[in-house]
Design a binder for these strands. Structure first.
Lengths: 341, 341
DNA sequence: ATGAAAGCGCTAACAG
DNA sequence: CTGTTAGCGCTTTCAT
């Protein structure tokens, strides 16, 4: 590790200028500066000029904390998500649209741990965010009720919140599985297997359940075709083995979420190319794989704008009944049409 | 899109309790509540109990804005990065270590646009973050000087800042390229080509320049072996073609960053497997590719801890000369040892 | 159109 | 060990 020291010293510190300094420098009242900053048109042009000059020469920058403390609004919406590290697509989409509404977004990770979830929510409340977006984890979010009563808009997404009545935006998990089945049956598959997330997780449950329904609808046996549990290499590998050794092996596989899809591909190794696979969730770099798997993609853009709509409406009519909105998924067909499992 | 309305109405709002409410409820002085909240041990046990009960019954949560306004510290460090969407590995690493120091991190995107960069920095200053971490973009960051003078620690990473003297943490770009050459020459390659980012970008320049040095060191011609420019499919594709049609085609290829590596793999398509490739930067899902490319990885953990060290030292000795620290890279050898370009 | 003054919710001197 | 009080920097009535 190379270290280079630059000789120059740093200048001595000056106090950070406040709005009072600006007012003094410009020779006007504090109030007038404030009005100019907040875009009030009723400031004399000559005054405005003097103030702007003062701001410039002092390098004044209003203190956002003080401003927010005084106004009630924070112009910030907070979000709790599984992991801030893996850039949640919904958040990414929201960040853009929120910006257009003059809102900032701040996200914090829960690691799908109820304790961390509550810490995250508390931290957001202490920052007095204008709204909270939650990808719920805990068995009960009843502790949110006081916040709700105080008028804080709280919206659940991806999974419904338990123990409390929240505005909610979900993907159509069952519809997505049906789309996967349509894709596969159109290509002649009937014996379709599923490997997915723990059924204690809402999306895991919904998707597995939908697979059962579809299989029954086809008159196919469900037995041994559904493998769910925490997504880990061993589990997926074992499931794959079991499927392979089944009396009547499946001809196609549906994986329940992006991580399962990736894990399955890793486990399949070179036999991946010979497996007909449809994955729930699209993921980055998907197209680099050979063959690239067909996926059921969630409509993050629509989910994001729906969340924002719900937020706006909640502001308008704080007492209105909560709503749950289900957003459809889409099949993205890629070049993966092998015929063997 | 399915919409379900839940009949329940929301309760009327109550005012959010303040520290005064807690004091009144507990029948103690405001000051005492404040001391309890801030972990002051000198609060009578019986009082403490009463206060805790009051906090609980009122659902009191201290206002972080007010607290920060009063204290000078924000306990937050801000960062400007190319894109907040693609989870910067350094930030991810920093988030963890910062947490251990009781610091929060807030990141905002620049899109490598100097205007957005300045907006981002200003926004962080207005939030009065305790320090700013910058992945510099602008031709001159001289406008930061007043902030520096006011004692705000500002640290550049990934590339040096121009027009201002900042503490800086860089990867050893040239060393990384040398490592790539060592890896390749050990496997018998001498005609090594390079496709990389625009040389107007610091890392792009350093890496391309290092390739030239290495090539010359081997006594090989540099002519036509180096292709740099904004990373786009057409450019990379054209470069690949040119390389392929060269009088003496290269036997190995170095790609200058993750995006170039991915783009090259896309362009190579099925001939990827027959290409000897070493990429600068590791990337997610790398291992899923066949064959998985060998990469020069940056040491994000070390970069992150170095940044934090620099920050701490700057707090301790505000006037000290700035330092530039260069962090070594590592070769991650993966199963990609084909012999043709 | 502008100026004086109150107060957002909190912490930290300073006395008791 | 506890209570009173003065601000942090800003917005915002309320008069002028």
């Amino acid at each position: 590790m190379v270290v280079a020291n630059t000789p120059g010293q740093r200048a001595a510190r000056t106090r950070r200028p406040t709005i009072v300094d600006v007012a003094r420098e410009a020779g006007v009242a504090l109030r007038t500066v404030s009005r100019l900053i907040n875009g009030d048109e009723t400031v004399g042009a000559n005054y405005a000029e003097r103030i702007r000059a003062a701001i410039d020469v002092l390098g004044y920058q209003p203190d956002e904390r003080a401003r927010q403390l005084r106004k009630s609004r924070t112009q910030t919406i907070g979000a709790t998500v599984r992991s801030i590290a893996d850039t949640h697509p919904v958040l990414r989409a929201m960040d853009g649209s929120a910006w257009n509404l003059g809102l900032s977004m701040v996200a914090v990770s829960t690691d799908d741990d109820p304790v961390r979830e509550q810490e995250a929510i508390v931290s957001l409340c202490r920052r007095r965010v204008d709204a909270i977006l939650i990808e719920p984890v805990a068995e009960s979010l009843a502790y949110l009720q006081p916040e709700l009563d105080m008028g804080l808009p709280i919206i659940a997404f991806d999974r419904p919140a338990k123990g409390v009545d929240l505005d909610t935006v979900l993907s159509d998990n069952r519809g997505g599985i049906r789309q996967a089945f349509e894709h596969l049956t159109a290509r002649g598959h009937r014996r379709i297997a599923y490997i997915g997330d723990d059924e204690r997780i809402y999306t895991g449950h919904e998707r597995a359940e939908a697979v059962r329904e579809c299989l029954r609808g086809l008159g196919e046996s469900v037995d041994g075709m559904i493998h769910t549990g925490p997504v880990r290499a061993e589990g997926v590998s074992a499931a794959l083995d079991a499927l392979h050794r089944a009396p009547v092996p499946p001809t196609a596989l549906i994986t329940g979420n992006a991580l399962t899809t990736l894990t399955a591909i890793r486990c399949l190794g070179s036999s991946f190319g010979a497996t007909t696979l449809v994955g729930f969730d699209d993921f980055a770099l998907n197209d680099l794989l050979h063959p690239a798997p067909t996926v059921i993609a969630q409509n993050e853009a629509l989910i994001s704008s729906t969340i924002l709509d719900l937020y706006q409406e909640r502001l308008t009519r704080p007492g209105a009944p909560t709503r749950t909105i289900v957003v459809p998924t889409t099949v993205i067909t890629r070049g993966h049409d092998g015929l063997r499992a």
